[in-house]
Structure formats: C-alpha cells, structure tokens
Amino acid sequence: MAIQKGKDLLLKIADGAGGFETVAGLRSRRLAFNSETVDVTHSESAGRWRELLAGAGVKRASVAGAGVFRDGASDALVRGLVFSGEVAEFQIVIPDFGRVEGPFQVAALEFRGEHAGEVAFDLSLESAGALSFTAI
C-alpha cells in the first residue's frame, strides 16, 4: 500500500436506501482491530512460557473520529443512534486497501467548543457483530 492522504480514510453510515453516506466533517479518524487472548498456560508448559489458545479470543474493532458536523443530516443520523442505542451498518473505506463493513454501535459522542471557534465533536464506535472486508 502506497502512502495515502489521511482525509481519504472515510467513515460512512448506511443511508437506509441500500447505500452509504459519508459522516460529514471528520478531520481525524482511527480504525483499530483487537483480538483478546485466552491464556492456557499450565504447570507443565514448556519452560513455563505462556501458551495461548489460537482463535479463541473475542475479536472487535473500534473506530474513533473527530471533526465538525457540516450538515444537519449527518448530525441527526449519528445523534439518533446515540439516543436510540441502536446498532447500524457502517463502512470504513481505507484507500488503496479495502472496505470494512458491518454493524457498529455509537459508544460515545462528545461535543466541545472554543469561545472563538466552531463546535466540534468526538465520536467512538464499537463493532457489534461480524465484519466483512472487501479489497479495493
């Protein structure tokens, strides 16, 4: 993968019509994959080295973003998910790599503002089911 512009990493939300709408105004974004480990070390483990059970841990993905809402539609979509607690389909586009798609829940939505600046937000999503990956 060649060096890419950070602004090309996109966070999209299902629009209800079979497509995805970009969450407007994101200035920074992060996608992280994690897999918990299951320790099966016992008193007879070779050299007392830790042993892990392959494929047994819980997998999850988290997404974080910060920026400004540029329009009422994307603001309303995200805010609605916070208050309803619903899980929605999201898509994360990683340029020249692929798309990660699946159910996410909005774990946090924070607003902040400076006296002489715009209102900004911080957004956190947690995966809520199996994710798919499609290479671009």
Rank of each mutant, 00 (worst) to 15 (best):
residue 53 L to C: 05
residue 52 L to A: 07
residue 80 G to T: 08
residue 18 G to C: 07
residue 26 L to C: 15
residue 23 V to M: 04
residue 69 F to K: 04
residue 16 G to Y: 09
residue 135 A to V: 04
residue 76 A to R: 11
residue 94 I to P: 00
residue 122 D to C: 02
residue 28 S to G: 15
residue 10 L to C: 06
residue 45 S to H: 09
residue 55 G to Q: 02
residue 60 R to S: 15
residue 37 T to P: 01
residue 97 F to V: 11
residue 73 A to H: 09
residue 14 A to D: 13
residue 127 S to H: 04
residue 56 A to C: 05
residue 35 S to D: 07
residue 74 S to I: 01
residue 42 H to T: 02
residue 10 L to P: 04
residue 93 V to A: 03
residue 28 S to P: 04
residue 15 D to K: 06
residue 17 A to T: 14
residue 17 A to N: 14
residue 107 A to P: 03
residue 122 D to G: 11
residue 14 A to N: 10
residue 35 S to M: 13
residue 55 G to M: 01
residue 118 E to Y: 02
residue 85 G to E: 06
residue 135 A to F: 00
residue 79 R to D: 10
residue 60 R to L: 04
residue 60 R to I: 00
residue 69 F to M: 07
residue 54 A to T: 08
residue 129 G to Q: 03
residue 133 F to G: 01
residue 53 L to I: 01
residue 16 G to P: 07
residue 136 I to P: 00
residue 10 L to F: 10
residue 42 H to G: 13
residue 60 R to Q: 11
residue 129 G to T: 05
residue 67 G to Y: 07
residue 57 G to K: 05
residue 21 E to H: 07
residue 31 L to Y: 10
residue 61 A to N: 04
residue 88 A to C: 05
residue 64 A to E: 15
residue 17 A to F: 09
residue 115 H to T: 12
residue 62 S to K: 13
residue 49 W to P: 00
residue 110 E to K: 15
residue 42 H to R: 08
residue 24 A to G: 13
residue 114 E to A: 11
residue 17 A to E: 14
residue 22 T to S: 05
residue 40 V to M: 11
residue 78 V to W: 06
residue 94 I to K: 01
residue 130 A to L: 10
residue 29 R to I: 14
residue 51 E to F: 01
residue 21 E to Y: 03
residue 80 G to L: 06
residue 79 R to S: 14
residue 30 R to S: 15
residue 55 G to W: 01
residue 109 L to Q: 11
residue 36 E to F: 04
residue 112 R to E: 15
residue 113 G to E: 14
residue 114 E to P: 01
residue 82 V to G: 05
residue 68 V to Y: 12
residue 29 R to F: 13
residue 75 D to P: 00
residue 15 D to Q: 03
residue 79 R to G: 12
residue 13 I to N: 07
residue 20 F to D: 05
residue 19 G to F: 01
residue 129 G to E: 06
residue 111 F to N: 12
residue 97 F to T: 06
residue 87 V to G: 02
residue 108 A to T: 10
residue 66 A to V: 09
residue 37 T to L: 14
residue 98 G to C: 01
residue 72 G to H: 11
residue 35 S to H: 04
residue 34 N to C: 00
residue 89 E to L: 07
residue 43 S to A: 13
residue 24 A to M: 05
residue 105 Q to W: 00
residue 90 F to Q: 07
residue 132 S to D: 05
residue 86 E to F: 02
residue 129 G to W: 07
residue 47 G to K: 04
residue 103 P to K: 06
residue 84 S to A: 11
residue 136 I to F: 00
residue 44 E to I: 12
residue 32 A to G: 06
residue 88 A to M: 06
residue 118 E to K: 08
residue 17 A to H: 12
residue 127 S to I: 03
residue 125 L to F: 09
residue 128 A to M: 11
residue 86 E to K: 12
residue 122 D to Y: 04
residue 47 G to E: 08
residue 84 S to K: 09
residue 133 F to R: 02
residue 11 L to N: 08
residue 14 A to C: 01
residue 29 R to A: 15
